[in-house]
Amino acid sequence: MKKVALLLSCCALSVAAFAQDTTTGPRSGRLASSTDYSSGGNGSRNNGFGIKGGFTASNFRGDDKKNFGNEGIYNTFHAGVYSQFSFNDKFSLQPEILYSRQGFKGSNPANTTQTGTYTTRLDYLQVPVLLVYNFLDNVSVHVGPQVSLLTKVKEGDRERKIADDNNVYGYSYNSLDYGLAAGLEARVGPARVGGRYTAGFADIIQDQDLSKTGTKTVNAIKNGMFQVYVGIGISN
């Protein structure tokens, strides 16, 4: 995770440096302009909608992370659509709808039917609502809340229900997650590239029954992920 964070930081700094080097004045030069479309007013770069997708490095965090062995990053993907609504040439609001495949790798210390090191795959439908601030003409910072609905769970090769209605597994998955997303984005014409980190605040696992899962708790863990993406604006 530290290597991924360092890589994303280097990419973000490189993008910011490139944007500054290609800008000799406000909106001067073809590369310096972040206007997505030839038509529209001065704020057209902060209006419109498009598609986006990219790489996700997902893991988990929290008090019970120490109770999992051989934990590691789950490399996967995300994709979806975004829209953007301008307040002025600096600030805008950007809601998104994303399909995000995430989760974590690790060995469960509990006495469950799933043993050894395996990947827990969690598929979410995410809705981040981000405040966008253009601190350079074509580079912006994004920050805002995110709500996620869990749609599918797969533990290793076994797909399982989100709820544990008959107390078969001794724990259930929380169908709702919420958290905070923050990142950096650069734009050239209709294209955009960026990176963001999202921290979930809700526990992934809930309703643990220690009589079935063992003496070590595994429910106090939360989502955490880095995303690197590219996007294309379609219309303003």
Rank of each mutant, 00 (worst) to 15 (best):
T56D: 08
S148L: 02
G233M: 02
I234W: 08
T115I: 02
G54N: 07
A12H: 00
L176H: 15
T22W: 02
N111D: 11
L136D: 08
L180I: 13
Y82S: 09
T24Q: 14
A199P: 02
C11I: 15
A181N: 14
F68Y: 05
G80F: 05
Q114A: 10
Q94C: 05
S58P: 02
T112L: 08
S175G: 08
D207Y: 03
R158S: 14
G103M: 00
L180Y: 12
N223V: 04
I162Q: 04
V188G: 11
G40P: 05
N219A: 13
L210Y: 00
A191G: 14
N42H: 14
Y229Q: 04
I162E: 06
Y197E: 01
V127K: 03
Y37P: 00
K65E: 11
N75T: 14
E159H: 09
V147W: 13
G41F: 12
L31P: 03
A220P: 09
A32F: 03
L122Q: 08
L6P: 07
N42V: 14
Q208P: 06
K154P: 04
P145R: 01
F201E: 02
K66A: 15
S39Y: 11
N223K: 04
L180S: 09
N42D: 15
F226E: 01
Y173G: 06
S34D: 13
G50H: 01
T198E: 07
C11L: 15
R192D: 14
N59P: 00
N134I: 10
G224T: 03
E155A: 09
R30H: 13
A163R: 12
D207R: 03
I204S: 03
L176C: 15
G189Q: 07
Q84N: 13
C10H: 08
A202L: 01
Y133W: 15
T56I: 11
G200I: 03
T120F: 02
L98N: 04
I234C: 07
V132N: 08
A12D: 00
R27V: 10
G103V: 02
V141H: 02
G41T: 13
P26F: 13
I204P: 04
Q20L: 11
G156E: 03
S175E: 02
S33V: 06
S44N: 06
E185Q: 14
F55H: 13
S14G: 10
N134F: 10
T22F: 02
F226H: 04
M225D: 09
R158F: 14
Q227Y: 07
A17D: 12
Y37E: 09
G103T: 06
L31W: 13
T119E: 11
S38L: 09
F91G: 06
S83Q: 05
N223T: 08
S44V: 05
